[in-house]
Each structure stands twice: as structure tokens, then as C-alpha cells.
Amino acid sequence: MALESDAVAGATIELLEARLRRLTYLLSGATDWTGVPTTPEKPASHDETVSRRLFRLEKELERLSRSVPAVRDVLQLHDRFPDLFQPPNPHTIPEGLTPRALASIVLSYTTAFPETASRLTSLKDLPIPEAHKSAALVELQPRFDRLAQTQSEQAAAISELRVRSARVLQRWYEVGLVGSGECWAEWEGRLEDVEREVRRTEVIRERREKEI
């Protein structure tokens, strides 16, 4: 049980590291010679943090929507008909196509028909397995079903762990990276205010001493 817990913990850490590298690449867009994403530089000020950059982008989009009618129309269209911006399902026949257009789509796959027919013909030449071998495979079917069920349960557990790891990583990124950067920026601003106040006090004191 301990070994399984260690294995799950190790796999979770690997997933977190992979997600962190992916986020790092999205932020920096650069990698070293081995392909590992480089760590993004610390923001020079509070205005250079990710949250402030996203805020500026949102404000710029609002400004464009007010000044450019085309942008405003696109945003309104997205709000009213969001399905238009989703890719169509490749397995669904599009509506509104004429029979000629549908025929052209079908005829574009005519080269695959002979190949499929030859493969179906070759299936007739395959030898039929012996009866005892088929019976052995049939007897193994319950085990296969149990293995498939176990695999499905493991896939569901892994999916849940991925979701939880993504939430943990998001929380750590928001609090640990973005939050600490904003905190340092705020402290730096406070220190600058204190330095200005100290300098102002020193200047006033020097002037009083010269007057005396």
C-alpha cells in the first residue's frame, strides 16, 4: 500500500512538473538547448505582472469595442451566438449542402474504395482458428472484462488526480508566484514612499539648521 501511495505521489509530482514547464513556456516562450523552458524573469514592477497585463488587455479590448464598430459587432455576435465560434463536428453532415456538393465530397474518397474492398477480400483467405483455441479465448473473456473495468476505474482515478493537480498548480501559481510578485511590488512601493518622506524630513531639518 505504501509503495502504491509513493507511486501515485511520484506520478502526481511528475504531472505537476510537466504542467509547470508548460506554463513556463507559455509565459516565456523560450527554451534552452535541451528543450527545457527557461524560467521567466521577475517582473520589473507591479504593472508588468500577469494580472496587470491581462487587465490592460481587457481594457484595450473594451476601448477597441467602443471605437471600432467591427470589433463591437464581433463581440456581440460571440455573446449571442457562441456556437459559431466552435469548430464543427467532423462526424455530423453539414446542413445546407446541395446534392452536388455532397457528391463531390463522397467522390473525393473514391480512391479508398478499392483498397477497402481488397482488404475485405483478403479477410476471406485468413485461416479459421481451431475450436479449442476459440473456446479458450471465450473462457478468457470474463477476465478481459474485469481488466477493462479495472482499466476504466484507473483511468477515472487518473483523470481525477489530473484535475486535482491542475487545481493545486493553479492555486500555487496564483498565490505563490503572482501573489508574491504583487506583494513584493507593493512593499517596494511602500519603501519608496518611506524613502521620499525621510528625504523630505532631512531637507526640512537641514533648512532649519541653516536658518538657525
Rank of each mutant, 00 (worst) to 15 (best):
A2D: 12
E4Y: 10
I13C: 04
E14W: 04
R19T: 10
T24A: 09
Y25I: 04
L26Q: 11
T38H: 03
P43S: 02
A44Y: 12
E48V: 08
E48Y: 12
V50T: 15
L54G: 01
F55I: 01
E60V: 09
E60F: 13
E62F: 08
R63G: 11
S65A: 14
R66C: 03
R66D: 07
V68C: 14
V68K: 13
D73M: 06
L75H: 01
D79H: 13
F81H: 15
F81N: 14
F81E: 15
D83P: 01
L84A: 03
F85E: 04
P87Q: 06
P87N: 07
N89V: 04
N89Q: 09
T98W: 01
F113A: 13
S122N: 13
K124H: 12
P129R: 02
K133C: 05
L137D: 10
E139A: 14
L140W: 14
S152P: 00
A155E: 09
I158K: 04
V163M: 12
R164Q: 15
A166R: 04
R167Y: 06
R171V: 08
W172T: 07
E174V: 12
G179F: 00
S180F: 00
G181L: 10
G181P: 00
E188F: 00
G189A: 02
D193A: 14
V194I: 08
R196M: 05
R200S: 13
R200A: 15
V203F: 04
R205W: 06
R205S: 11
